[in-house]
Amino acid sequence: MATSDALAVTYYPGCSLESTAREYAESISAMCRKLDVELIELEGWTCCGATSGGVLLDHEAATALPALTLQAAAEFERPVFAPCAACYNRLMVAQRDLRAEPELMEKLGLEPRVLDLKVYSLVDLLRDFVGLDRIRERVVAPLTGIKVACYYGCLLLRPRDMELFDDPEQPRSMEEIIEAIGGDPVEWALKMECCGAGLAATMQDACEHLVGRLVRNARAAGGECAATACQLCSMNLESRQGDTSPAAKPLPVVYLSDLVGLALGCTVSEVGLGRHLVDVRPLLAAREAVSAEGH
């Protein structure tokens, strides 16, 4: 349903949104439909190399992988949207390095416009590209009564010398988005602390230690759920809390796009909440109770 105020982006979902983060892909597309953001998937996109590329490949190769995507996306007159925080990070770091190394640009045969290509993560897509006004205007089911601990993770605002959309120690952009949909963001200390997701596949114990700290701190600050904009954080926060059976009352972990989508009228299944590992139903039931009281 393309309307005159439709916004178009080149969509670069990344490998995990095809598999372990299918729920994130569902959430993104449901939310974007409500916002009239058209997701035009980059045809034949390839992997950005992620952390593994950064560790095992040399600088040239680690830059060449995301550069394939930048080059392909630069064909189009629209920004790139990379909901995967790792993909976003690799694209942004590649742009940083290519700006500083014209000889590498030449060696990889890249055109200057790959440097001007705007790359958005979920957070700055919502705040800057869509804009808080459009979000506010379209809210049909405000998030009233839900206390949200916004969790930024490491990949959106670091390293500090890439182009940053917010302060790398005390960001507020996710909180602004939560406020725009009527939610109640809590102030907590560890919103920029690493959850260890980069090592989640093999260092389970270390991750449980880090996630445990995050969850306790979010709870202590009054958070009823954590909101992320990264599927690696999400999986790690959900799966490394220790006991995630309902009796243990684990902290629900949702995507920022889940909350925005729900506030804009998406259903629970449209945003993929049924695929989450921690049961989010108690949280949503509480919300319904509050909105029933209020109206």
Partner: peptide, 16 residues
């Protein structure tokens, strides 16, 4: 990390 690059090289995308 090695398995990741291997899979990425095989398919063009990492198969988790």
């Amino acid at each position: 990390h090695k398995a990741f690059l291997e899979s990425m090289g095989r398919w063009g995308r990492a198969h988790e």
